[in-house]
Design a protein around this nucleic acid. Sequence first.
RNA 1: GCGCCUCUAGCUCAAUGGCAGAGCAACGGACUCUUAAUCCGCAGGUUCUGGGUUCGAAUCCCAGGGGGCGCACCA
Length: 521
Amino acid sequence: MAAGRAGACGGVLAGAPPVRKHRAPMTERPRPAIPYRYERTATTAEVRAAHPDLAAGTGTGEVVSVAGRLVLLREQGRIAFGVLGDSSGRLQLFAGAGWTADFDGFVQLVLGDWIGATGEVVATRTGELSVKVERWVLLAEARRSFGDKWHGISDPDLRYRQRYADLWANEGSRETFLLRSRMISLTRRFMEDRGFVEVETPVLHTLPGGASARPFVTHHNTLDMDLYLRVALELHLKRLVVGGIERVFEIGRVFRNEGLSPRHNPEFTMLEAYQAYADYHEMMDLVEQLVAHLATVLLGTTSLTYGGRPLELAPPWRRATMFELIAEHAGAEVDLDTPLDELRKVAAAHDVAVEGSWGPGKLLLEIYEKTTEPALWGPVFVMDYPKEVSPLARDHRSKRGLVERFEPVVAGRELANAFSELNDPDEQRRTFESQSKARAAGDEEAMVVDDDYLRALEYGLPPTGGVGIGMDRLAMLLSGAEAIRDVILFPTLRPEQARPEQARPEQAQPEQAQPEHPRAE
RNA sequence: GCGCCUCUAGCUCAAUGGCAGAGCAACGGACUCUUAAUCCGCAGGUUCUGGGUUCGAAUCCCAGGGGGCGCACCA
């Protein structure tokens, strides 16, 4: 199957553009040395802010040094107009043979080159704010092209694999990731302002736990034991509540060995938070306040449009039980007292593939997921799940067979999962053992008995509310992204394959090797 | 994993069984106020790979690879 791939090792990646020919080899232009630092005195945005209304054809007497990438270059004989892009924006560079040192070198610059330029801030005759370049220095050559200056880069594969090119060429991409960064930062501040302490717990687990998911397995050589990449943060954080950290949170990467989709990446970022003395009602308050706060600060409004549909994030969000919502959307009044035969009929009527081992709780969850969840837009808190499918949540205080658990559905997707936490070690042992049986019966996502966690519970976990929020999905929501890969800088992809016949440039003939490693020595 | 779609120059895209092209970028040149500057010139290809059908394949068929979407699983 992998025919012809055996010899592929390192070197040229398939599809990678060839390195650009060295410019102007005929001119014998001396290659300027690249400095080790550059003294920038202003960003392009600062220059704009300082001179909002400069009249056409006038100068300011103010000399600045700006730095960034050359975005456009319009040569016009003895003068030239460049456009410099930096992380704050763009600004025109006005160069001329009469006042710009090494003007010939300036017009030989290539789009994408990094340069620093020094000169007076002026407005050209047509009124464009510019730096009238007196001196400039090359800071890095762009040996590869960024592509079409108008269309940018649209090939998704190229955007994900070469994110740096996407970030440079596509402004929307840059904005999305800046928004994500601010979102994470604001989330930290929001939690800290409410007395939550941020911690970091292990990524390598000796037992997988905290969520129903297949883990990645890795191996520690010295200990000669398998370790699991965490599928959740939950069990360690609740241990910390046992230890007296009454409000604790972690924003961390978790790993699930499952399928990829526009909404699933094998590694993703969760916020998990645990609050002693709180129940799941208070966690609902926390979730809706956090999301509304982020929308307000980042977007200036809680009234969003996502995928063309309106979405109002202002609290309070609707709170409804799973059974109420099933009744609304499947037209069937069902609960745990409904006879099993009746539930199977409802399931069959909605094309739910039923397995014989399922109890009523699992049946109800499947019916919900098939009939109701896809129809929800939200935001809505879906409350009170069957205990059968919730091994870490505490029994409902008044409804037998249910637990105090909710999932907020926002823009048609589950955004989080939260409980009044199960804190009875005996009960926890029973649910672990039930999970363990399911696992032995072949359910690879079922949990195992975690004796260390049970020991922690035996020291006493106070009443605690806990929540886990999928931060990637939250970033999608706030940025309007339809695919999780648009909010993850380097999403998981199959490895790019080298072309065997070009795969070993370091061993190849010099005239082939040199363009690939022009500076290798 | 299964199904559907897709892959052509560095980038964005044409060519629907009959000579592989355009714009931008790059390269050479002209131009002293441009705004995706304009103009002239030059170059650029394993049409993802391998087979097959055909007088002739980017195009049709088979297999493989990458990507996208859907299903399944999950958040």
